[in-house]
Amino acid sequence: MTGEVPTWEEVARTHGRFLYNVAYRLAGNDDDAYDLVQEALLRVRKGLETYQPGSMEGWLSRIVTNVFLDEVRRKRRRPVEVMPDDPERLLPSTPGADERTDGFSDDVQSALHHLPEEFRTAVVLCDVVGLSYEEIADAIAVPVGTVRSRIHRGRRLLRTALQ
């Protein structure tokens, strides 16, 4: 990076894979991850006008996390009806030819998805993105002590789920 403000296309081209990965770990499924990235890219486009060169991945993480949390809050305000019978699948969804899955990753992803959103967000920003506690605190607007507590409790819950 030269330190100049990149174009939006450059950002999406260089960091799209990173964005999608973070979105997927937050959202837990491909459809929602896809939506998250779309909205995040829109905000990226707007935000580039005032972007100060610095940690691009940190800045992108903050954007995609906030999109995620906005959606979480929106869903909380309008509870979704639970139906009397659960949707059933007659056929298991067949993975695409280019999909590599291993059972272990699926288990971890599933356990991650079952964490409450606040814990999941903190864990993903720390262990998937690699942000410092201070960067995380800045991204989600909570005190550093809260970040530390959420990460710790999230990890403990994960460990329980994985046993």
């Binding site: 939506d35 779309q38 909205e39 890219l41 829109l42 959606e71």
Partner: peptide, 12 residues
Amino acid sequence: LRRVAQTVVSLF
């Protein structure tokens, strides 16, 4: 949310 895909991002 998905209006983005149809308008803005389709350029890219």
